[in-house]
């Protein structure tokens, strides 16, 4: 138990260090940008509606007078107190904007994450188990096609077919314009196509990697021995068990890609989520918001990696028992 705790703390420390690196990288990249947030149109408009303190702090972060290190440390100090600054676009605290947008995206992301994982695992197992035969060829063909397809183009196609041509689903917006209160079925209807797009693209990658792992396992001695002993249900009893660990890694590693995909897909469906906010922040020169989104997203990705590592300890008997003995 002590061993596990030490492992977790070590991982957490590494994660904190990485987050620091991410924020510094993002800050320096934005600082290097020739676009001055206070001079862009949105920035100008925003300045008018801000309190003097807010403007002063903004200049502290982004003004050209102070050296970059000082400004970064100022930002970092704010973050440690839970203050990510104020979004220029939305004129509200960054954390508030992110929270609201994330709540909108979370639906979409979690559904797509589970769906793509389940679909990818099933397809990968089916393809790997029938290697070289038609189900495998079919699934591999599907994966190759999908992974060669830009997610946003797939989104456009789905939009054309379901919203324009068949007219069964709405073109965009998870909330009807005007009314802030959307019913659950209404929300689902709007999240369906974006979720479908993300699931289809995400599943292809997971399926291909799962297939490789399944083939590795099927080629291993322990499967040969199981066959030599006339065991039935080899797929369920041995392959699934041995593919579980890599599948967990894949599943959690897919979070980053999923969020990346949501940036493009939300743009196509004008879905008011985190991804769309990131694009708006980037185009509008809303540096505090973009920086906040980058850090929060990275935290989610690293959190996913940490979760995978911890799950390993629960599932893998070598780690579980090894730790128990120490």
């Amino acid at each position: 138990m002590k061993h596990r705790l030490k492992f977790t703390i070590k991982k957490l420390l590494r994660m904190a260090l990485l987050l620091l690196g991410v924020s510094l990288t993002a800050f320096l990249l934005m600082d290097a940008s020739p676009l001055d947030p206070l001079q862009t149109n949105i920035g100008q408009a925003a300045l008018g509606t801000m309190s003097p303190e807010q403007i002063a702090r903004l200049e502290n972060y982004w003004g050209v007078d102070a050296p970059a290190t000082e400004r970064y440390l100022g930002w970092l100090g704010g973050v440690l107190r839970g203050d990510f600054g104020v979004s220029l676009l939305y004129r509200r605290p960054v954390l508030e904007v992110i929270g609201q947008r994330l709540a909108g995206s979370l639906w979409l992301l979690v559904c797509a994450w589970i769906l793509s994982g389940a679909l990818g695992l099933a397809l990968g197992l089916a393809a790997g188990a029938r290697r070289g035969r038609w189900p495998d060829r079919l699934i591999r063909g599907y994966c190759l096609t999908v992974s060669s397809t830009p997610a946003f183009w797939l989104a456009l196609l789905l939009l054309m077919v379901f919203a324009v041509w068949l007219k069964v689903l709405p073109i965009g917006l998870s909330v009807p314009i005007g009314g802030g209160q959307a019913t659950l079925p209404e929300r689902l209807r709007h999240a369906l196509l974006p979720g479908l797009t993300l699931s289809i693209t995400g599943a292809a990658n997971i399926a291909l990697h799962t297939r490789e792992k399944v083939i590795d396992v099927l080629d291993s001695d322990c499967i040969l021995f199981a066959r030599a002993r006339g065991e039935g249900h080899i797929l369920r009893r041995h392959v699934l068990r041995n593919v579980a660990l890599p599948a967990i890694t894949l599943q959690f590693a897919s979070i980053g890609e999923l969020i990346g995909g949501s940036v493009l897909v939300e743009q196509v469906f004008s879905y008011p989520g985190l991804g769309q906010a990131a694009v708006a922040a980037g185009l509008g020169g809303d540096m505090p918001l973009l920086l906040g989104i980058t850090v929060i997203t990275a935290a989610i990705v690293f959190g996913g990696n940490l979760a995978a590592d911890l799950l390993y300890g629960v599932i893998d008997p070598r780690i579980r028992r090894g730790a128990a003995r120490k």
Partner: peptide, 27 residues
């Protein structure tokens, strides 16, 4: 296989690393 003809393989790598010995024995 496994009923009248049995294989005794080379080593421990032929056992499923993720399964308890008893479960493997009982197939």
């Amino acid at each position: 296989r496994g009923r009248e003809i049995a294989l005794i393989p080379q080593g421990v790598t032929w056992l499923d690393p993720m399964m308890k010995v008893g479960d493997q024995l009982r197939r």
